[in-house]
């Protein structure tokens, strides 16, 4: 079980969290202006890297807040967790 650092609460056990998919996907301000292809991309197309991945987590059994994380999908190492308003941390070497 991983230890994950909630930006508000600190290190907590993985079972307090829920993974919520890729981060930084913004819902279009006017969905009706989107073509079918654009909308399908927004709905369904996701990065699936073996490597560093920016993703959303929610401290669902804690403070309840959503936050972002930079995690390596191969090693499960977290380089950083950060709030939505924080600058995006750099991808480690």
């Amino acid at each position: 079980m991983l230890l994950i650092r909630c930006p508000w609460c600190g290190d907590r056990a993985e079972l307090e969290f829920r993974h919520c998919g890729e981060a930084h996907i913004v819902r279009p301000a006017d969905p009706s202006a989107q073509s079918d292809a654009e909308w399908a991309e927004y709905l369904y197309l996701r990065e699936n890297p073996r490597g560093w991945h920016r993703e959303r987590w929610r401290h669902i059994h804690g403070c309840g807040r959503f936050f972002n994380a930079l995690r390596h999908t191969g090693t499960d190492r977290f380089a950083a967790t950060y709030r939505a308003e924080d600058p995006r941390p750099e991808i480690p070497e």
């Binding site: 819902r27 929610r58 669902i60 807040r65 939505a84």
Partner: peptide
């Protein structure tokens, strides 16, 4: 509640 919280916190803050 999870879904509504998601929209409240991240899409419509």
């Amino acid at each position: 509640l999870h879904m509504l919280e998601d929209y409240r916190q991240t899409e419509f803050p």
